[in-house]
């Protein structure tokens, strides 16, 4: 039986792991290679490494750091941040990454998803989408997918450059398009919930799960074990990504998995 995946995420800035709130107020959380090894030993199912300022600063990823991390891991490893071209992807995969996560460049140049998936295979192209809720009084919209909430309506806007720029684009429609173009997985982060420890955006996850046919990695908002359980059950996500709860030692990967197993979620223990 296919198990649900727990994926620690290393957000890296200038060679150090950092963690912020709503993509801001970054705090140092340690050395990426040490943390990668620690999570591998704890039983992480995969690891994600995001060079969070690469895209905004208009530079490439730290290839040597990717190599050093890849050399200590025997689990799949996804790398993202500042990936703009087929050559960038080739370089990152050569350095030891199994998948690349593309965000800003995919929005600006959607044909990159198609081209990349044809060359490297869909399975190594993760499209990462950063979203933020936009509340509205309107029940319907001509170009946005409006969803009924407890108190009103909302749709999700796509942000690029590491959460710095809104582009007024429907995230649900973008997700469907990215999959059609060849994305093998979607990594979905919420600016509303990131770093808040209030739980994942379950409504967003549910809406996505019923719209796309590829695995969904839920990100942003994990504060306790129940949040992760809900993302994988109510939200229908295939994998849960978390950062703070692991970096600051609140839980080990093993503890998360034990909890999930106790609640009937298939995991690799």
């Amino acid at each position: 039986m296919l198990t649900k995946r727990i994926i620690p995420c290393l957000d890296v800035k200038q060679g150090r792991v950092v963690k912020g709130i709503g993509f801001k107020e970054l705090k140092d959380a340690g050395d990426p290679v040490e943390l990668a090894l620690k999570y591998y030993e704890q039983g992480a199912d995969e690891l994600v490494f995001l060079d969070i300022t690469a895209s905004y600063e208009g530079r490439g990823i730290l290839v040597s750091l990717v190599e050093r991390i890849a050399d200590v891991l025997y689990i799949p490893f996804t790398v993202g941040g500042g990936i703009r071209s087929i050559d960038d992807i080739r370089r990152i995969l050569r350095a030891g990454a199994d998948k690349v996560s593309i965000n800003t460049a995919a929005v600006q140049n959607p044909s990159l998803i198609k081209e990349a998936s044809e060359i490297f295979g869909s399975q190594c192209i993760v499209v990462s989408i950063d979203v933020k809720r936009v509340y509205t009084d309107e029940e319907q919209s001509t170009d946005k997918t409006v969803v009924k909430m407890e108190n009103g309506y909302c749709w999700w806007d796509v942000y690029i450059y590491g959460g710095k720029q809104s582009i007024n684009m429907d995230a649900l429609k973008w997700a469907e398009r990215a999959v059609k173009l060849g994305a093998g997985e979607l990594l979905v982060s919420s600016l509303d919930f990131d770093g808040t420890k209030q739980g994942y955006d379950l409504i967003l996850l549910k809406e996505l799960s019923r719209r796309v046919s590829v695995p969904i990695i839920a990100s942003s908002g994990a504060g306790d074990l129940d949040h992760i359980l809900k993302a994988l059950t109510i939200g229908g996500a295939d994998a849960a990504l978390a950062a703070s709860i692991f970096h600051y030692g609140q839980y080990t990967v093993g503890e998360v998995k034990q909890y999930l197993a106790k609640h009937g979620v298939p995991v690799r223990l």
Partner: peptide, 9 residues
């Protein structure tokens, strides 16, 4: 869901 991604028995 395709691709089949993850740990399976």
């Amino acid at each position: 869901k395709i691709p089949h991604i993850g740990w399976n028995t």
